[in-house]
Nucleic acid binder design. Sequence first.
DNA 1: GCTTGAGCTGGAGTGCACTCCAGCCCCTAT
DNA 2: ATAGGGGCTGGAGTGCACTCCAGCTCAAGC
Lengths: 127, 127
Amino acid sequence: MKISEVAAKTGLTIDTLRFYEKIGLITPPPRDDAGRRSYDPDILGWVRFLDQLNATGMKQADRIRYARLRAQGPATYAERRQMLEDHRTAIAAQLVQLQDTLKLMDQKVVHYRALEAQHIEPEPTHD
Amino acid sequence: MKISEVAAKTGLTIDTLRFYEKIGLITPPPRDDAGRRSYDPDILGWVRFLDQLNATGMKQADRIRYARLRAQGPATYAERRQMLEDHRTAIAAQLVQLQDTLKLMDQKVVHYRALEAQHIEPEPTHD
DNA sequence: GCTTGAGCTGGAGTGCACTCCAGCCCCTAT
DNA sequence: ATAGGGGCTGGAGTGCACTCCAGCTCAAGC
């Protein structure tokens, strides 16, 4: 796959893909005769997984660490599992925070509706 | 309350409190005779609320907009309610994302445990 | 055979949300 | 009365995660 295809299918920009490669989130793909990146389609799943870690608040440094472990193969299974367990814990904490705040939003919306009913805007009169 | 007390009770730093004032998240408190900020304890609830919006992904610009509306009083009830409803929607979306990823973490942890069982690290032998 | 467009590199720039600093003033305790 | 600590201002600096750019090469279509 060309870099533009990977960009289109993952939603990242071409610049971001190259940036991810530079910082070690993506292993450098082989190049074609003209020196252009030629990706294995497997990259799509990996990029989407990275995106999911991103969207759930994992730091770049940790994603890089995970990517490096992954590149080292089976010897790092335990360490990778530990990272995922830690992230699971972080997600659980975020879920609590979000649920609390969701509830608060609902309460406040109800509260504001009551306030709005009391505070009728003085309409411009034309009589 | 002195700024140091507000900082201690909210978890923000003194610098951050002054910064929040500068950008309009906090209305400038009255000053004592020596020109030092003297906060009404009500500030604590407001700061914690801001923190909650922050922790659930609301952008600075939106928090500032909300703070400004709040400072304008009852005339902005409807607009504030709308902002909270929008944020509620955003939170709901994040919840889905987090739940999906939580599930994925669990699956991957199970997967890694299986892989670990198959890949027994060759221990250094001393015989 | 030349233009167009995609891709390449190294490096500079951006936006967000703080965070730190120098140099000053005031109040309190010794 | 003086030394220390807290607070003040305006402005510069930081860290993160990209994002953009100049100037180049290469391959393909007209």
